[in-house]
Simulated scan of single mutants.
Amino acid sequence: MSHILENIKEVEAKVAAAAQRSGRKREDILLLAVSKTQPVEVIRQAVTYGLSSLGENKVQEIMDKYEPMGEGVHWHLIGHLQTNKVKYIIDKVDMIHSVESLKLAEEIEKRGAARGIVMDVLVEVNIANEESKYGVAPENTEAFIRQLARMEHLRVRGLMTVAPFVENSEDNREYFCQMRQLQVDINAKKIDNVLMDVLSMGMTGDYEVAIEEGATIVRVGTGIFGERDYSK
């Protein structure tokens, strides 16, 4: 069981070092433990060791784990979110990382209004223009954010991307750099109701480079829990 503790210590050390290299403090970066496919008893260990922010790709997994994990845990929905599933998590997650269509944003607005909740959201950007990925094209991001800014029950907090899967993390540096520039450019427009202070990018294979380029949230699963078993 202690392998998770060892993994967390290793990841923590790398996050801290990358933060230092980027001229920031360790506490400026949220290490989001991606708990998809992991059972509650395993996730609980990570929480015990200080990782109370958990990222899930699927609504169903949040539904299954929400009650057993109890209070003191902060859930983030990081995967593609279908409009018809917003109602199940609107009162369960702290942040939705994957807003990439007006239809989805309107549903979050509607469900948020019904529950009296203002949901923090990130706009998912398809920074490498990969056909297999969701996300708004970089050049359309500002216009999309302006549409979201008019909604009262969601608050745009920043940007998220799923960078290409690469063998060498340096290959993604240009994309992380472009994401940071996009964040800076949109911030400079001072759009009402938009506080772009979050940049969610970088996963197990490339989070150190992502932090060096300005990530404020890194999404690490395998690096913490080990390889996933999808057969379960």
Rank of each mutant, 00 (worst) to 15 (best):
V34Y: 09
L102H: 07
E212T: 11
K25R: 15
L31M: 06
L148P: 01
A33I: 01
Y175T: 00
E100Q: 14
R21Q: 03
G55A: 08
L195F: 13
D94T: 06
V198I: 14
I145E: 03
G158D: 04
M196V: 10
K232A: 12
Q45C: 01
D206H: 08
L195S: 14
V194F: 05
R26C: 12
V11F: 14
D192E: 06
Q20W: 12
L199V: 11
E12K: 15
S53H: 13
M1G: 07
M160G: 01
S101L: 00
N187K: 13
A149S: 03
E131I: 15
N126Y: 03
G205M: 06
V218T: 09
Y66I: 00
K103A: 11
M1W: 14
V209C: 00
V121N: 03
H97P: 07
V136A: 02
E10V: 07
V209F: 02
L195I: 14
I186H: 10
N129D: 01
E71S: 11
V166N: 02
I127F: 01
A128P: 00
I62R: 00
P164D: 10
I108V: 13
L199K: 03
T204Q: 07
A188G: 06
D229F: 06
M151V: 07
N172L: 09
V220C: 05
E6P: 08
G226M: 14
A113C: 12
V209H: 01
A105E: 07
S22F: 14
R115V: 14
E213C: 01
I78Y: 05
P68H: 09
E12Y: 14
S35V: 08
T216D: 03
V121H: 07
E170D: 15
L195W: 12
D28M: 00
K110P: 07
D120W: 12
E100S: 14
A149W: 02
S101F: 01
A163D: 12
L81H: 08
D197I: 07
V34K: 13
D229S: 07
V59T: 10
L51Q: 10
S101M: 02
E227H: 12
M151I: 07
M63K: 02
D206N: 11
G205Y: 05
R219G: 02
E170T: 13
V86C: 02
I62F: 01
S35K: 14
S52E: 13
I90D: 04
M119V: 13
K190E: 14
E142D: 09
R26T: 15
S132R: 15
A105D: 04
I43T: 09
V123I: 15
H153V: 04
A18R: 09
Q60I: 05
V194H: 09
V15C: 06
A33G: 11
E131C: 12
L154I: 10
R180E: 15
R24W: 12
T37N: 05
A188R: 12
A143T: 08
V40D: 08
D171T: 07
G226I: 13
M95D: 02
Q20I: 14
E10A: 04
I89K: 04
L104P: 12
H97E: 11
Q45T: 13
A46K: 03
M196N: 15
T141K: 06
